[in-house]
Design a protein around this nucleic acid. Structure first.
Lengths: 249, 249
DNA sequence: TATTGACATATTGTCTGACAATGTGTCAAT
DNA sequence: ATTGACACATTGTCAGACAATATGTCAATA
């Protein structure tokens, strides 16, 4: 199968289209800090002149970056350089996972690794501000009762707060695809849950453990919580070993 | 601060540009399976007619998707619907982490969560094929000696193989940003390492543990391996608590 | 003073129409 | 079976235009 004649010696020379080159240049400029987040981009005409191409080409180059969240619109006209939000940053990863038909089980295994990790780290770097937010969240959960929509939001907020308490931005971003992909499942599980179930209990104990800096207990309760979630998925009639849906786009 | 007159009642109506709408439609069609991966996209003129806009608009819409890896070029002409590769899928997340100036420590904490997880899962679902590949990788590592480039590649390959052995596609994709961002650090660490160090030993013991299905031992050795890496980063003169570089773009 | 209206200007979004470069398919010649 | 010649389709890029919308200025007004 090795055709030494046609296969060897020369490598495919890549003549990438101009819009890709331009896009790369702009991207680099942003990563280098030549263009700082928050700054306005030069106008399309400016860029066109600088690169020596047409506005059309510039616009295509910009679109290429826009999806990644590196560039956004300030006020619907002028474009600005952005710090990508964790949502936009994890979009491609989420959709890629969707298209690869990742299963609940696979995602759950990751979450089961990351969530206890977050809980553990939170024990080391808890702040009073986050303690207050968590306390407020517990109240919110308690007050939600059978209002599933409210309960759902509180539940998600709780986990996000824990992750914030870990003071690890990378973790916060790495978790985001799970948030996005699990959302429909969260919803289904919580809607089918008997009110006043274990959720609040779990959360409370976790909160107390974290406040005490009791890493082991915090991690254990998070694991129990995740186990509950797994059971919930199955009880909600979702196929734990099957691919997740994409009601989120 | 609540101006009840101008603030309330009406929400900002969003008149998104046409290229965004078109992009969304195409994206949905792909996620719905109306356009399957591998299929050719209709020609730009076709799309332009169908959506009732110009080719210019269509092209901008396509660029928007191209970055995310949902659309690629088959043969430099006709565009084709793609299953995003794990590399392209994690690009935005990686650059977002870069721009948020994520530290080595933050990334390491995640890796320290995911890598032992992978090693543990691998114990449950090892295949003979991967055993062979891992065995070959160990030989490769042994043979590399002081060839740091070769050693680097072998090291990365080892971890990827473990992750593959976990048979969890989501994990494989979630790990990818770490691969991308740690790469320069890997390199620096390995170049500064005394040859015949602990690497091969660690890998071998992990391999043996995984083959035996000894989850606990496999995880422990992976953790030791990660601890070595942490030491390596510090010894290489990199700031463990400082932001990572972006020599990768 | 603070708000409004009128107006010129700048910038983006979209359209039209064109051309060059490149890949595809066909068919005859070898 | 390979090559050459040719028509055709499709993408990449250009030039130039116009509409819609923000921005800034300045006078008029309450």
């Amino acid at each position: 199968m090795t055709d030494t004649l046609t296969g060897g010696k020369f490598q495919k020379l890549n003549r990438a289209p101009a819009y890709q080159a331009v896009s790369q240049k702009i991207r680099s400029a942003i990563l280098n800090g030549e263009l700082k987040a928050g700054e306005l981009l030069p106008t399309e005409m400016d860029l066109a002149e600088q690169f020596g191409v047409t506005r059309t080409t510039i616009r295509e180059a910009i679109r290429l970056l826009e999806y990644g969240g590196l560039i956004g619109r300030a006020d619907r006209k002028r474009l600005v350089v952005c710090l990508p939000s964790k949502e936009s940053a994890s979009n491609s990863l989420s959709t890629a996972m969707l298209m690869h038909e990742v299963t609940f089980k696979e995602l759950w295994q990751i979450a089961n690794g990351l969530e206890p990790l977050a809980a553990g780290l939170a024990c080391d770097s808890m702040t009073t501000e986050l303690k207050e937010k968590l306390a407020a969240n517990l109240e919110r959960t308690g007050a939600a009762k059978s209002d599933t929509k409210e309960l759902l939001e509180a539940e998600i907020e709780f986990h996000n707060l824990i992750a914030q308490a870990a003071h690890n931005n990378a973790l916060l971003m790495a978790r985001e695809p799970l948030n996005q992909l699990f959302y429909p499942a969260f919803k289904a599980v919580i809607e089918r849950m008997h009110p006043g179930g274990r959720i609040l209990d779990c959360h409370t104990r976790m909160f107390e453990a974290i406040c005490k800096g009791d890493k082991k207990t915090a991690e254990e309760w998070m694991q129990k919580h995740m186990a509950d979630f797994e059971r919930g998925i199955k009880m909600a009639g979702l196929d734990f070993n099957g691919p997740i849906d994409h009601q989120n786009l």
